[in-house]
Design a protein around this nucleic acid. Structure first.
Lengths: 131, 131, 131, 131
DNA sequence: GTGGTCTAGACCACA
DNA sequence: GTGGTCTAGACCACG
């Protein structure tokens, strides 16, 4: 199955986060969650670049990093596919990927002197909104 | 009252976030939380620079931005003070400052296909650890 | 279209007004007047710096402020462009930008006890000279 | 006659223009206009400093400059008086003092592409409002 | 003493 | 190529 570019990625060009990193992290998460299964063919660099109006080098850089990480694999003449070892991770490993952003949120909450219950309630609300 | 530099700031020089921005955001949150009260004198550029081993211009840049934002005010020849309009914000306004990072966390959680309860439990744990 | 540096800016290095602010205000006015259209590419920091014999950081500071203001936008890796929302302002809005300096002139005229007609005549003369 | 501090000066501590310069220019204009007559005793440094909540050194610096300029004169034990040669200037000399600010306004008007008539009408309005 | 400005030059991240 | 960040150090303006 070849995932559709438009469905897969959501890039915020206005964000301060580098585009290539947005791509890398999204693929990483999608692979960990199993939305990208081992063997799935990734869209070509050109296709992504065109559809998202990005510089092909930006996409290429993301793919390169993902290959180094072992999330994607290069198949000669066939483009990139999701790597075998990128099997869906168990919930606790996926949770580990979420830790950094949660730790940052906790640090900010403390500096804002918000009490944990308020924060958790707010977060619960947002979790329901988002999907 | 003059807050103590060492107590006020914790800078991660290794982080990818620019130092001046770390300073800006910390001051912004401390003012919102009321740990910095209107009228409080901020440590001088040189003092912060020395204690945190930073270049004075880096600190100065942060102060300049905070002044533009209206969080700090310049008292000519006497350093910066916390601005009058930087009164401690009510809890709901402070919570609003936390929204962006929580929304980001929610987005990542969804891409990781983690169920909300797991995420909330993890966050609760982290919130207890952090302080 | 890429405006020419030399044509765009006239910097008075001798003035007490900081160079970066001279740049900021000129760009702001040129954008308001429509001489800089949304989408126009601005000259690069290095180009301006070289042509006006300034330090690149000085120019960079001006660009940074103009970006914060929303007058310019950064196109990663491709320099700055005039922001979309920086559309040419109608005459009355542009006139509003002129008010502060006119108010100052009026205040000074009053302290000099010059009668309004004299002042207006003088100003009319200067307006004809200047262009 | 001793002019009253509060009536004489209007200081904008928020402005970017140095306080001592605001003082200097105001005295200069008032003397040129004849509102301060030769021989008039100026308020003491302390009095001005207290009433306007300024640092006495700031006031002192302004007085020093005005003395150097010949606008004020030091009378031992009597404080500063308006200098003899600071006689009210004829209208054309006073107009000359107004030129710089008018030239700046003209320059800005041109960059804003405002036509001279509009500018003059606006200025006429402001001149009527201000007093 | 305070902060502001500018220069010079290095290094990095991004595209 | 682009702009961003940081350092080091000088000088100035202000109070």
């Amino acid at each position: 199955m070849t995932p559709h570019t438009a469905t897969l990625f959501s890039i915020a060009t206005g964000s301060s986060e580098p585009i290539y990193r947005q791509l890398v992290e999204q693929v990483r998460r999608l692979a960990a969650a199993g939305q990208l299964q081992p063997g799935d063919e990734m869209p070509s660099v050109r296709e992504i670049a065109q559809q998202l109006a990005l510089n092909p080098m930006t996409v290429s850089k993301a793919y390169g990093l993902l290959e180094m990480e072992g999330v994607l694999a290069r198949r000669r003449g066939q483009g990139m596919v999701v790597a075998a070892r990128a099997a869906p991770a168990p919930a606790d490993e996926r949770a580990a990927l979420l830790r950094p952003v949660l730790e940052r949120a906790a640090r900010e909450a403390r500096q804002l002197e918000l009490d944990p219950d308020t924060v958790l309630t707010l977060f619960a609300t947002i979790l329901k909104e988002t999907p």
